[in-house]
Design a protein around this nucleic acid. Sequence first.
DNA 1: ACAAGTATCTCGCTGAACGAGAGAATAATG
DNA 2: CATTATTCTCTCGTTCAGCGAGATACTTGT
Lengths: 156, 156
Amino acid sequence: MSEREEPMRLVHLLRGLTVELDLFGAEFAARSGLHPTDLRALVHLLDAARAGQVVTPGRLGEALRLNSAGTTGLVDRLERLGLIRRERDPQDRRRVRLVVEERAMELGEGFFGGLIGDLVAAMGRFDPAELATARRFLEAMTSVVAAARQDPQGTS
Amino acid sequence: MSEREEPMRLVHLLRGLTVELDLFGAEFAARSGLHPTDLRALVHLLDAARAGQVVTPGRLGEALRLNSAGTTGLVDRLERLGLIRRERDPQDRRRVRLVVEERAMELGEGFFGGLIGDLVAAMGRFDPAELATARRFLEAMTSVVAAARQDPQGTS
DNA sequence: ACAAGTATCTCGCTGAACGAGAGAATAATG
DNA sequence: CATTATTCTCTCGTTCAGCGAGATACTTGT
């Protein structure tokens, strides 16, 4: 009732939203014959590709918190599915560059594209000032979680 | 620069936030000797307990998209860790009720409590009208994702 | 009583991820 | 240069979460 309870409702909403997004991802992954980890890897690779960054197995494994053996297995799977390709780096030939194939782009586009379109459409029903507020809110929440992650105990 | 790009930034923020929250959960889980699934189960059980609902292995497995064998294994793990307890339902003795132990509450409280406190504190820097907007926004986004989940193809 | 339905658990298996360490290339040092 | 250290990536053997199929236990409808 009181306004003191509103924040807790927002916290639950926030969690509910992440649950929905996770389930969406998991179901997409299952439908495409991917494992949750494969999907996370794909998202990471597509992001990096869009930003023009080079990703090596080492970097990928680090981002996904996998050890080297797990990373090799992951890269093997993605390569077997024709989503990425290994390529020796000509500069430093110890390194392997992970190149995203066309198919991976299409896969990502085809599935998340729809969701993104729907989200953007739903945002259209908010005016610019409201979107700015939502943005500030999301940024604030994200930085709180990021801070909590680095300092697990501190109720800062 | 144009306002047409703001929605995409919000989409990325949204994803970034869920990634942070997932990582937070995963790191907490690892620290507590739990698997990601165990944590999801615990959250579900604590929510249900707070709402006064009875959870059976069947319901839990359904919520987490596990089959019966996986569910049994999950419940075994949680029971072995002393987080929950199996209890035959006296009304319908085919059923087993999953009862959350004190320890599980403390675990959930001790870890998420801090984060929730930080989030609520951060919300304190928004006025009630802004929080209401954030809430509408989150509700809109959640229902879009939920709808997309049930109708994977439809760009509705 | 008997059949059908529902809830949970057991068995055997697949495969993702781990720890340890090997292999391959580059960089640093005498 | 040759040698040693360093940095990536990959291989081997193992562990364990989750799957499919089916067993078991209990309840409900006829």
